[in-house]
Amino acid sequence: MRDGGMSEPHDADASRRPLLVVADSLAATYPGSDAPALASVTFELRGGQRLAVLGPNGGGKSTLLRVLSGQLQPSFGKLELPAGRVALVPQTERSRLDFPVSALDVATLGAVARLPWYRRPSRADRALALDALGRVGLADRAHRTYGDLSGGQRQRVLVARALVQDAPLLLLDEPFSGLDAPSRRRLELLLEELAGAGRGLLLATHDLDQARACELVLCLNRVQLAFGEPERALTPQVVERTYGAWLHGTGDPEEQPASPGRTP
């Protein structure tokens, strides 16, 4: 037993938990663009920690998720993912709501990622998927058509899929957007539980309150502005710089491409 173990469990256990992400001076540039969409990103994430990536639209959050999930190669810097597998929980609107699949079918798709190409998801994988749906509180909706579920339920199905994928690191892209208060609360509890069970969670968000609820926060506006525990990292200056452009209403369009000169 360490001192203050009860009040600061994450800090106390931190060094014992396995490292999941080590990023050092990461930069990423989209093909065909000169200006990096993301630069100077340096952080560490361990199992059991929730890291909120905070930033305005177009600030580089999605770019960071793409780099971490291997869809985009970093143009500079070093990235280590010691645990290997990464599960991405995308925004639910990005998935096809008209697909002929049940919630259980979607959750089962998580198994496809870890199976070799010649194997189909087995009965055991389906049982695992049903179990995962139970953990996100959707056991009774397992056989409903995915497109007919509410936004919050769909988001939880995607989390269940990530659980079936059995990756130690989960990347969640704006998981709370479009959810009503009860759904939101439900998802928060679920994420807290997952972290408690030792998984690392990285949440892209532009919600300050959400970020404050996490163990770690990383402020991003094209470049990394701060990283650390919320109470230390989220100084008024950092918040101002993170949201400067956004608050002043210059209205960054959507997500990525860089208009040169915007970079502070």
Binding site: L88, Q91, R94, R96, F99, D105, L109, A113
Partner: peptide, 12 residues
């Protein structure tokens, strides 16, 4: 199915 369902979060 996985690739068609969501190209971004495709688990496969």
């Amino acid at each position: 199915l996985a690739a068609g369902f969501d190209e971004v979060g495709d688990a496969a």
